[in-house]
Design a protein around this nucleic acid. Structure first.
Lengths: 130, 130
DNA sequence: GTTATTGCAAACAATTTGCACCCAC
DNA sequence: GTGGGTGCAAATTGTTTGCAATAAC
């Protein structure tokens, strides 16, 4: 995790820090415009990709296909409705056996969960691509 | 989880059962054609959506944006490289404190992980949409 | 026969890319 | 001055939708 960021990357990190929820690239683009620190949409995507490659931010993808970004430091997960697509935030980092509890406390009928790890594979670590 | 499936849904379930890995909608479309049980691409997407709504299958989304589907019964997770995008399958259902171990055993530098639960929210349960 | 399902092709939307311009160092 | 960073607009790609034809019960 290097500590060298471009202007756009810094702007984005700043916005993400000021938010307490994840945000889509499109909304981020709009938010930056609101803050009078506009960036091109392409730049936003490129910066997000770079930050993700540095392990600075993480992304989750909605069923709609759009991705939401937040700082890696954030530790929130979500209950995603396979029907309406809405997602409900839950704090902490529960796991499998926890599903039953969720059914009760959130009145959410859990079908399955997804656990994914993100980082750099051996090859990409050594080749130290950017 | 009702047990009433359309023809296309049955075909898809059959294919998914015969595979030991998840598959994209596009590849599923091709696979069905290979097996002389072709379906329209739109039908494939619609059937997948319906099956997901029934909790029969689950989906994960690659960084490329395309979604991979598999039976809910499958219990595999993946190591996703934020750099090259490749994903490596891991069996079992590890969690956070496990990351360190992954670094060793898979030579994978974990930046973060994502845990999401999928199912039906209270509202959608009562309204029993489809 | 009536209703739900399917296939095709056109429409969409998020994301990516080519290229010229500009800034940082 | 030079190389990476940025913006714009066009191109791409997975996915969705309208609608007429078809299958299911």
């Amino acid at each position: 995790m290097k500590a060298r960021y471009t202007r756009s990357q810094k702007q984005i990190i700043q916005v993400l820090k000021s938010l307490n929820h994840d945000i889509s690239a499109q909304d981020l683009y709009a938010e930056l415009k609101n803050r009078d620190q506009p960036l091109g949409l392409a730049t936003v995507y490129r910066a997000l990709e770079a930050l993700k490659g540095k392990g600075m931010i993480k992304a989750r993808t909605l069923s709609s296909g759009e991705a939401l970004y937040s700082l890696t430091s954030e530790d929130k997960h979500h209950l995603n409705c396979v029907n309406c697509g809405r997602s409900f935030t839950i704090d902490g980092c529960p796991i499998r056996d926890f599903e039953e509890i969720l059914q009760q406390s959130h009145h959410f009928q859990v079908y399955y969960h997804t656990l994914e790890f993100f980082g750099k594979c051996y090859q990409c670590q050594t080749k130290s691509a950017l």
